[in-house]
Write a protein that binds this DNA or RNA. Structure first.
Lengths: 154, 154
DNA sequence: AACGTAAATGTTATATTATAACATAACCAT
DNA sequence: ATGGTTATGTTATAATATAACATTTACGTT
């Protein structure tokens, strides 16, 4: 459970950030991309590509899988959305400008995927890679479990 | 590239470990499970379920997907194999008794997935989870990049 | 405004990954 | 040997993702 006071603000802000970033980078924030991002942000949890597709089908006839996957690819490449590989699902990025190494605390109860950007983890991963003389291209860190809200912790 | 001197030893040892573990736990290390594990260990890199299926088809007629997936599920549940979610592939575990939090350095060049079991990372992950009052069930950490061999580092 | 090009989307088809559901067989404790 | 449990066989299909090519749209240049 995510306790934003007004979730419509979360969506609006995410769309605005995306628009700004695309403007700044000379990229096109098209209608399809906007609608997909909007659907990704309908909750703070991961959403599946085909759920996006189904919801777009209600609004736009004849949306097909490649359209959705292309939009998701675009959004992912530009750090606006992250893919959660262990769920085959996608989640909006709350701070697309800060950095790209975002880790996730995924609650298997309520479904929320909380971004968790921890320097210690980044450091530890970097050090391990360095020790192995390994050159990092991409890091996927997905922590599944139960969040504090669902555990009833206060 | 993995530089084991005699790879057939790697396979034999993995099969022996699996047998011992199953014996100790009262589990059945059946023929299907043994063959699947053997194929997983044919290299030190990840292998896809359908590649296992294809290879078994050469040896045993009429092996079907559920058979392979069931064996992989069994092996994964018992820590003998890990699933690499970012690749939809499976890799043998080199020390199935030690622990279950194994991280991977996956070389996108040679395909090797090196197990990398680093306490600092475990700690950092544990602390972050604790700070978020999050109860961990499962951690997936997959680091993709280029390994020292492929980079030509000495 | 018309043109040309590149980028995005539409469209059809299919590839890849994974599981549901039920039937049969093998194992093993009594 | 019998009965229950676990594993496998079998058929079908679900879920996830992409290839390939056609068409449209955006947009700078003339």
């Amino acid at each position: 459970m995510h306790n934003c006071t007004t979730h419509s603000d979360c969506i609006a802000e995410a769309l605005q950030r995306a628009e700004d970033i695309c403007d700044a980078r000379g990229l096109r924030f098209t209608d399809v991309r906007r609608k997909v991002l909007e659907l990704v942000w309908q909750s703070h949890g991961p959403i599946k590509a085909y759920d996006i597709l189904d919801q777009l089908d209600q609004r736009i006839a004849s949306i097909k899988p490649p359209t959705v996957y292309r939009a998701l690819d675009f959004l992912t490449e530009n750090g606006l959305v992250h893919k959660i590989n262990s769920l085959n699902a996608f989640v909006g990025c709350g701070h697309p400008l800060k950095h790209r190494e975002c880790y996730f605390l995924i609650c298997s109860d309520c479904g929320e995927a909380k971004e968790c950007c921890n320097l210690d983890i980044v450091d530890a991963v970097a050090k391990t890679s360095w020790r192995n003389q390994f050159e990092i291209k991409n890091v996927t860190l997905e922590i599944t479990g139960e969040c504090s809200d669902c555990r009833g912790v206060h």
